[in-house]
Each structure stands twice: as structure tokens, then as C-alpha cells.
Design a binder for these strands. Structure first.
Lengths: 208, 208
DNA sequence: GTCTATAGTTCGATAGAC
DNA sequence: GTCTATCGAACTATAGAC
């Protein structure tokens, strides 16, 4: 019988814990040095085991990267759904301001995607397809969002939502690069506030 | 005596030619796979020699990367001076449109910096200091440029030039990422044109 | 100035014990 | 599930001939 004071874990549960720990550390280390710049043994050590120990859970380096990316994407998806999920009660561009402010508190998360997306521009990079698809999806999502904002009068109507979406996403990605490279020189939230002010010009001012 | 029909080159001249060829190929291959993803032997082969042959000209991989970055920076500097050098006769934001249009014809050049700048976010990356300094310089240059444009009435006056500059640069960098990743889905020049339209709104329309 | 040969590492992955 | 031991490949850099 299992004792409530000495909670034994099943093998499946222990596997789950190890995998989670590995992904957590891989997340950080891939984010610091990219795929090519990362050694499996470093991830293993930080996760508290050896190289072969790690490879018991993820059969090769590429599989681990994909697992990290998909895990990260799921986490982000949840966060975005919370933020934009109930669009009827979040109808202004101010929601995007919240997103930027959140990102500024999570450099590790931002760094992972910023470093890996450019590294994966190479056709043979293990993350290539993942990021091509990810950006295609996000462009679609942003276009829908901007169209809604525009229909509701928060964005001037003489500009294509396709261009607005691209500008918005590009601006965020570009700020992140400079912020990661030289954090003290960049205030993403403050700059984005100004950006929104320009965007909604001619319609009405956003809250400051 | 030297014959005009069989132009012998001095040793110094041959060295210069080899170095130029190596830098040209290193430029391309570092740009495709980053520093960590690039093999010295690949660069050597593409430049028409062996590994040790290459290392006669550049004593190690890091030195070659620095040489590539500085060479690229010099080339860019010349181009920018041509574009912005005589500011009195180039007083509108339209000059930046020309820059974006040029970039869209030079994916190899854009890719080199896009891949290397994010890879070099890591403190111990050989290009780290180079890119930190490069962005500090460019932020300064763009601030001066935007202030001039603003003073001359091409940009609305109620926005800080620091923020305008950051938005402008970030937007360009971010577009380049998506363009390199999925070229058919992004038209940088068209998007930038819309961007300028928004920017100068309230002052006057830019030429279309 | 470029080569062949190779040293010296590092790294991803496997074999097999416990 | 994790370990020790180790293989085999890949890679940077050096030594020395031409």
C-alpha cells in the first residue's frame, strides 16, 4: 500500500518529471547558444544527468530541439489565448501593449525564439519548417486581429491589414533583437506605446 | 623583365586576391549557417584551397569572422554614404525607401547580418562586441537623421526621435527575418511604403 | 603560398552493466 | 532510468615538405 507520507511515483511519472526538467534546461541553453552552438552534454549536466541519460528520453539532438520548440509554442498559445481569447471584451490595440510588456519580463523566452528563428533560415536547419509554418500562422492570426480592430474603428481604414500586420510583427521582432543585445539601451514597452499612438492616429488616441 | 601579355602578379598582389576570394566565400557561408554552423573546410573548398591553405591567411576561425564583419561593414558604410552623404539634397524619408528596395535585391548581404546578429547575442560569441557597438552607432545615426527629417517637417513633431528611430530600425530588421524565411510571402518594399505613409501622416503624403 | 599528413579535441550516439 | 565506457565522426589547428 502507498503511504501518504512517502509518496512514491510511478515510472511514468518519473519519466515525465525528467523530461520536463530536460526541456526546461534545453529551453534555456538552446536559447543562449542556438542549436549549433549547444552541446548535448551541457543540457544533460544542467538537467542533472549524463549524456546517455538524456538520450534515453530524446533519441537525438534534433528531436530534443523540436520538443523544445513545440513545448514553447504550446505555452505561448495558452498565454495568447488568455490575452486575445475573449476578443469581444478586448477590442483595442492596448492588448498588444500588454503582450510587449509581458515579453520584457521574460528575456529567456524571447531569446529562444529570436536566436532560433534566424538560425533556422537555413533550409537544412532542423527548425526550418517549424518556423516557416509558425510565421505563416501568426501572419494569419495578426491579419484577422488587425481587420477586427480596423472594422471597430481603432485603426485608420485606408491601410491594408496585411501591411499593418507585417509592420506590427516586424517591429516587435526587431525591437527584441536590440533589446537582447543591449538591454539597457532599449525600452520595448515605451517604444511600443509610441508606435500605437502613431498607428491609431487619425482615429483616436490610445490610453497613455 | 615583365611581359605585358603575361601579367605576373607580385606575392603581395596574389595574397590580396586570395584573401578577397576567401572573404567573399566566407561572407556567403557564414551568412547561410552562422558562425557555429560553419566549417572552415567548407569555406576553404569554396575559395579553391584546403583548410591549412586558408589558415595561412587568417590564423583562426574567429579572426576570419571578424574580417568578414568588418569588410561587410565597410561596404555598407560606403553605400550609406552615397545614399545619405549629401543630406541637403536628400531630405525626405523616400531615401529610406531606396535603402529597403536595395536590400531586397541583396538577400546574401541581409542574411549575413540577420543570422550573425542574433547568434552574437551570446556574451561569448566572437561577434558580440562588434554588433553591440554597431547598433549603438546606428541608433545614433538614425536619431540624427530622424531629427533632421522632423525639423524639416517630414515627420510629425509630437513624437520623440529616439522612438521613431528605434521603430524604423526594428521594423526593417523584423521584415528581413520573415523575408529571408519565406521570401514569397513578404514584400519588404511595398510594406515599407505603407509604413512611411503612416509615419508622415498629419504632415504630408510621401510620393507613391 | 599552398599542400599532405596528422595531432589534439570535441561531440553525438551506442553498448551493455546495474 | 541512469550509469560507465567507448566508438566513430567531425572539426580546428599545427608540422613540415614543396
Amino acid at each position: 500500500m502507498q503511504n501518504e507520507l512517502s509518496p512514491r511515483r510511478s515510472q511514468a511519472e518519473r519519466t515525465k518529471l525528467s523530461k520536463a526538467k530536460i526541456i526546461k534546461e534545453a529551453n534555456r541553453i538552446f536559447g543562449e547558444n542556438g542549436f549549433h552552438g549547444t552541446r548535448m552534454s551541457d543540457i544533460a549536466r544542467e538537467a542533472g544527468l549524463t549524456g546517455p541519460g538524456l538520450l534515453h528520453h530524446f533519441s537525438c539532438k534534433e528531436d530534443l530541439l523540436i520538443a523544445v520548440l513545440e513545448n514553447r509554442d504550446q505555452t505561448d498559445q495558452k498565454r495568447l489565448e488568455e490575452l486575445f481569447g475573449n476578443l469581444d471584451s478586448n477590442q483595442t490595440l492596448q492588448t498588444l501593449q500588454t503582450l510587449v510588456e509581458y515579453n520584457q519580463t521574460a528575456p529567456e523566452m524571447v531569446r529562444l525564439f529570436t536566436i532560433l528563428v534566424t538560425e533556422s533560415i537555413a533550409f537544412d536547419h532542423p527548425g526550418h519548417e517549424f518556423f516557416v509554418e509558425r510565421y505563416r500562422n501568426y501572419r494569419g492570426l495578426y491579419i484577422d486581429l488587425m481587420r477586427k480592430y480596423q472594422d471597430e474603428g481603432h485603426i485608420r481604414k485606408d491601410i491594408d491589414v496585411e501591411h499593418i500586420s507585417m509592420i506590427m510583427m516586424a517591429m516587435m521582432d526587431g525591437m527584441q533583437i536590440q533589446w537582447l543585445l543591449d538591454p539597457d539601451q532599449v525600452d520595448m514597452a515605451a517604444t511600443f506605446k509610441v508606435f500605437l499612438k502613431i498607428f491609431s492616429l487619425g482615429v483616436k488616441e490610445t490610453a497613455s
